[in-house]
Amino acid sequence: MSQASKLLGLEIELRVPDEIRKLGPVVYIANHQNTYDLFTVSRAVLPRTVSVGKKSLKWIPFFGQMYWLTGNILIDRNNKNKAMGTIAATAEKIKQKGLSVWLFPEGTRSNGKGLLPYKTGAFRTAMQAEVPIVPICISNLHGKVKLNRWNNGKIIIEFLPPIAVPQGGREQIREITDQTYQIMSEKINQISEESGSPYPEYKPKS
């Protein structure tokens, strides 16, 4: 799947520090931009990593079946009780099988709206599994891909140092979530400028 980025005319520059490759199980979090993420972020998935996706993915012909059979986790986002159970089940899977999990804390594709506010699920998962968060920052992809153009520029994917998630209540989790959002926002803006395509600015609804 990752080789499809070449068909999209994109050059992928992957920046993974050696310390990240040597880590054990973690919760990876990344910004989620559009459907092209499937062909770009897959270049950054490290060994023994699964993702958590919405249940409807299983109905995509071929891909859905492969996604489920390769150990990825499907959740029902419309059922909050099931979603809470999925956090506990995902944390247990990390502990028992020594897997890392990839999550998108925005919860949905931003589609050019900037970096959306983060939900706390990924951080609660890391807390329950007692593993760190590893931020993954992806430069701007919105509006870059023109399917009739061979060269659509460069995408930078950069891993940041791990962030410990302390045991705590709702306020502590919200605090570490907001701090991580700020760190990632600054890095995403930096690498987007570097790649020649500024990241859209998020504008909250008034």
Results as ranks from 00 to 15, higher is better:
M1P: 01
Q3G: 00
Q3N: 02
S5Y: 03
K6N: 11
K6H: 11
L8V: 08
L10G: 08
L10I: 06
E11T: 12
E11G: 05
E11M: 07
E11P: 02
I12G: 04
E13H: 13
R15C: 09
R15Q: 15
P17E: 12
R21P: 02
L23A: 04
L23M: 11
L23K: 08
L23T: 09
G24E: 14
P25N: 05
P25Y: 05
P25G: 02
V26E: 09
Y28E: 00
Y28A: 06
I29R: 00
A30G: 01
N31G: 03
N34V: 01
N34G: 14
T35Q: 14
L38P: 00
F39P: 01
F39S: 07
T40F: 09
S42M: 14
A44L: 04
L46R: 14
R48A: 12
V52F: 03
V52P: 06
G53R: 03
K54D: 00
K54R: 13
K54E: 00
L57W: 00
K58G: 00
P61F: 04
P61S: 05
P61N: 08
F63K: 04
G64H: 07
M66V: 14
G71T: 12
G71L: 11
N78G: 15
K80I: 07
K82F: 00
A83G: 07
M84R: 11
A88H: 10
A91E: 09
E92W: 05
K93F: 13
K95C: 11
Q96K: 15
K97Y: 15
G98Q: 11
S100E: 12
S100D: 13
W102T: 05
G107S: 08
S110D: 13
N111Y: 10
N111I: 09
L116F: 09
P117K: 13
G121Q: 01
T125H: 08
A126R: 03
Q128S: 04
E130S: 05
E130N: 13
P132W: 14
I136C: 13
I138C: 05
L141S: 06
G143P: 10
K144G: 03
K144C: 05
K144R: 15
N148D: 14
N152K: 09
N152R: 08
G153M: 02
I157C: 11
E158W: 10
F159P: 08
F159I: 08
P161N: 09
P161W: 15
P161E: 11
P166L: 01
Q167Y: 04
R170L: 13
E171V: 06
E171G: 09
Q172L: 14
Q172F: 04
I173M: 10
R174S: 14
T177R: 08
S185L: 15
I188L: 03
I188R: 02
N189C: 08
E193D: 13
S195Q: 02
G196E: 09
G196N: 03
Y199K: 01
Y199W: 04
K205Y: 06
